[in-house]
Design a protein around this nucleic acid. Structure first.
Lengths: 217, 217, 217, 217
DNA sequence: CATGAATGAGAATTCATTCAT
DNA sequence: CATGAATGAATTCTCATTCAT
């Protein structure tokens, strides 16, 4: 970290290394920020602690982010790209709706609930109101895109007769509601009453699709 | 309320008036606090502003609440009693499950979404993590009690053949999930895409009960 | 306290009773104030606590004392009159100096160290600097008068050949220094090392008078 | 001290300079705090004023001291080490007791009464009661050590026949009492009646030692 | 680039004092 | 007179942000 790595490498590689180091450090700070924000909320998190956790000086944070708010925004931004891609990808496979849903559920459990991403989502849900820019970005990046995909999925399912009506296309929220509740429950009440998220989601889809299947039958 | 009624009143009535005034002022402060907390979150709300909004001096708040945190706790506490009572009340009537649900939905829309209570719930969801006492109180006061009522309702429905299985008894969260999502959506994304909560809830129950009805059929 | 004592007594007796009650209440407040000031110092004492301890409402204090400072002043004032009188009285008896001193010592132990008066003295020593009026009053009331008496005593002792020189007349502080130290020690260090004040004072006088006696011899 | 000496200095010297600056600033704050505390007492002193007097920002104080109380503790702590060392040093010389005492007296006048140290002692005497940690530290650091030294001195004096009895070994307070009284008097009453401390201490030792000498004679 | 000391605006809390009842 | 609720100035402490090194 303190080695100057002076001569050798050509200029291009030099610059590239610099850029990589910069990116790496950015990631370290973002990771530390996520920990602190998730633990204490936006207002409660101290940049001092973020810096300590990231192993950098406090001032360094300001070399990568304009201010605390931008750090928060970037935190959200940085964690969402890969996330929605997965959802959109599910459409490309030509599988039965129920199968797609089951895969999404387990992918959600694996990729979101099992990782720091759930903390990001929780942060958006809990702090988003005071950060319109974050809410806006998140809206366009996640629900808007995800719901578009879901609507397409549902319509295909209806067309194929896999599902009876298009209520779910009108209210895609109905599909993901239990997932959000699971995230919130986990942070608030799991001490008192643990919640088996996978079972919850499975039960949810069972109910939704039993309805549909019967109807279609 | 503002009549002076000086002489006649005996000591008792005097004291009573005092108590009433005290209670009234408490309410005023709580209402102002709700506004500020809902707007800015716990950390962001300034007691100065709460006081100004309540029309009292800053110090006065401390005559009614030990500190900011207790003010927050009492805020939650004060708004919940009447709320669950309604849910529990729904059980006492001997109506078909679907009817009960519809009533709960419209009662929720009227009594929660249409009032400040939705802000309280949002506050619990967004701030509860950093206030374990609030989360605990809320858990015991709302979901625990409400879910007990829901489970009983569902079981009665199953026994009567109104509904096919007891998944909903196992995961009452599935029933209220859309309601919570509606509250959060309202605060976060309604600017971009308004959400018709009543239609959402109706669609939700339609799906749940179509499943059940068909099954039962 | 709450009885109105309406009709009977004549006007004079009425007024007298009023005055007595007033005086009594004043005393109660002063006693409570002494407790609180001694415990917490001037700045640390809360009038709220003084009132509670005195069993009166906070506002009542202001019916008897202009403000906190005057309460403190009156506290000092009220406790000192009787005190110096005793010292001055010691002169009137025509006893040998050593006997007078021994009497003063035991009287000091009894009347000061054994009572709340030691707290008053401590308060003057510890708070007097910030209350010039108190310091001034105390100076004129206690050391000035007491030292005048002491000087007279010493001079008489010298004249009678009971004591060799008049250093003690020049520095009466030398006579009372150990008493003050005892008061301070008591409040600060007695936890770590108790101090037998009477023995201390006796040893002190032994030293002073052995010197004198030998010299005189 | 203010020279920039930029380039040459190596890392070590850099760090050293940092450390020195830190220490210097700490001293500046302590000095300012002493002024304010001595003037207004602990409770009355405002950190705002301490900062202004020290020429730093309010927040800076908190980079050096956890809170107001620790600032006070460190104030006392920082001023006492060198002080007792002097007392203990007096023992090492093999001089007659009276000479040692005279030296201590003039050293006390020079090193304590003539400096800010007297203010520290006064602060301990006046505020110590509400800061048990300060009282404890001071007790172990000053009277305990000083009295041990005094006891040894006195015993040596007795053994050498310079002094008659060991009352002073039992109550070393008797030796320093006038010094403390001088400090208090200075702060409280010197406006009304100045006190020549050196003469007071000399007179004190004269009395003590005349007694002893005669006895020994 | 990186550092971390310094800054100072800002917020919670306290408490002497007032005043309507 | 007595009360005690209300006031708001004053004070401590925090922490995002800046900047000299």
């Amino acid at each position: 970290m303190k080695t100057k790595a002076k001569r050798p490498a050509g200029k291009g590689s030099q610059q590239q290394k610099r850029a990589e180091q910069r990116a790496a450090r950015r990631e370290v700070i973002l990771a530390a920020a996520l920990d602190e924000f998730a633990e204490r909320g936006f207002a409660g998190a101290r940049l001092d602690d973020v810096a300590r956790r990231a192993g950098v000086a406090k001032g360094t944070i300001y070399l990568y982010f304009r201010d605390k708010e931008e750090l928060f925004q970037e935190l959200v931004r940085s964690a969402l790209g890969p996330f929605v891609a997965a959802i959109e990808g599910a459409l490309s496979h030509d599988l039965p709706l129920r199968v797609v849903c089951d895969r999404l559920a387990s992918s959600f459990a694996r990729e979101v609930l099992g990782t720091r991403r759930k903390d990001i989502i929780r942060l958006v849900l809990t702090e988003g109101r005071r950060f319109p820019k974050v809410a806006k970005f998140y809206y366009h990046e996640v629900p808007e895109r995800a719901f578009a995909a879901v609507r397409a999925l549902v319509k295909r399912g209806v067309a194929r007769g896999e599902i009876a009506d298009d209520k779910l296309a009108k209210f895609p929220q109905l599909i993901i509601a239990p997932a959000l509740v699971a995230i919130l429950w986990d942070g608030l009440f799991s001490r008192f009453e643990p919640l088996d998220t996978e079972a919850l989601l499975r039960a949810h889809f069972d109910l939704l699709f039993k309805a549909a299947e019967r109807r279609a039958a």
